[in-house]
Amino acid sequence: MTIKDSGTEFVTKIHNELVQIRANQIELGQELTERINDVANRVKKLDSRMEARFDAVDKRFDAIDKRFGVIDERLGDVDKRFGVIDERLGDVDKRLGALETTQDSILATQKSMQETLDSMQSRQDSMEFSQKSMLATLVSMQSRQESMETTLDSVQSQQKSMETTLDSVQSHQESMETAQQQMLSILLTIQRKLDVN
């Protein structure tokens, strides 16, 4: 196999590798797009679920507000009947303590919900960072592909230079063979003259 054939085979292999790399990049891009779309759909579903839960919590708060309104009305009646319920003040104090405990529990629930929202926001930020990282990886792969194409152009240029050098060497070899034949002819002529003398 000549150098030219070897160079052609090498260039063909590089071309096939580039075609395979491009096909892999397209497949990876499609897979990343599908995964990103799937994540977006899951986030939408999660948002809808959280909205439904928040609506339920709002309804519970409305019910609690109504209960507090009823309690306020009852406390008004208690004030009007203050003289009558002196003996029941101990029971009223206990009920007020229970209401305060319920309010503390509601506040704790609100705090837990806020922490859940903060955690969801953190996860969303992490997902955005992952998407940016994937895009950076795709850009890096494209840059490597361009570098390989530049390398291929350089290899082709070197191949042409080698072919030119080979042609020059063959021309020089033919010139040397011609000079050797001329020198041999001169030596034969001199030898004949010496033989005659």
Rank of each mutant, 00 (worst) to 15 (best):
88 R>W: 07
12 T>I: 12
97 G>W: 00
36 I>G: 02
114 Q>F: 06
56 A>L: 05
161 S>C: 04
96 L>I: 10
5 D>M: 14
162 M>I: 15
115 E>K: 06
63 A>F: 01
116 T>W: 05
146 E>F: 01
87 E>C: 07
101 T>H: 13
83 G>Y: 00
42 R>L: 05
160 K>T: 15
104 D>F: 12
95 R>G: 10
91 D>Q: 02
155 V>Y: 02
98 A>D: 13
56 A>K: 02
187 L>R: 05
196 V>N: 08
110 Q>E: 06
22 R>L: 12
47 D>W: 03
15 H>C: 15
98 A>W: 10
168 S>F: 05
125 D>Q: 07
42 R>W: 04
119 S>M: 14
104 D>P: 02
21 I>C: 04
129 F>R: 14
27 E>K: 02
82 F>M: 06
9 E>H: 12
197 N>D: 13
107 L>A: 14
145 Q>G: 01
151 T>M: 07
111 K>F: 09
108 A>S: 03
40 A>W: 03
169 V>D: 02
26 I>M: 03
126 S>Y: 08
1 M>N: 15
184 L>M: 15
136 A>M: 00
80 K>F: 01
190 I>R: 02
36 I>P: 00
186 I>A: 14
22 R>F: 10
33 T>N: 04
48 S>V: 12
20 Q>C: 11
78 V>M: 07
189 T>A: 09
90 G>W: 00
27 E>R: 02
7 G>R: 09
193 K>V: 11
164 T>Q: 12
38 D>N: 04
54 F>R: 12
96 L>C: 07
59 K>N: 12
187 L>F: 07
41 N>M: 13
64 I>T: 10
195 D>Y: 06
175 S>I: 10
185 S>C: 03
48 S>W: 06
24 N>S: 11
80 K>I: 06
186 I>F: 11
88 R>H: 11
76 G>A: 15
14 I>P: 00
112 S>R: 08
183 M>I: 13
112 S>N: 11
155 V>K: 02
160 K>F: 12
152 L>H: 03
183 M>G: 09
1 M>T: 15
185 S>V: 05
79 D>K: 05
188 L>E: 09
92 V>Y: 02
87 E>F: 06
151 T>Y: 06
57 V>E: 06
116 T>M: 06
197 N>Y: 12
7 G>S: 15
142 Q>Y: 00
130 S>I: 14
145 Q>T: 04
155 V>W: 00
95 R>H: 12
169 V>Y: 04
44 K>N: 06
154 S>R: 08
72 D>T: 11
137 T>R: 01
125 D>L: 05
32 L>N: 01
37 N>S: 02
2 T>D: 09
34 E>L: 03
29 G>S: 08
49 R>F: 13
5 D>A: 15
7 G>F: 11
1 M>K: 15
159 Q>Y: 06
33 T>A: 04
55 D>S: 13
143 S>H: 09
2 T>G: 08
45 K>N: 13
59 K>Y: 10
180 Q>F: 12
71 I>L: 03
85 I>Y: 00
42 R>E: 06
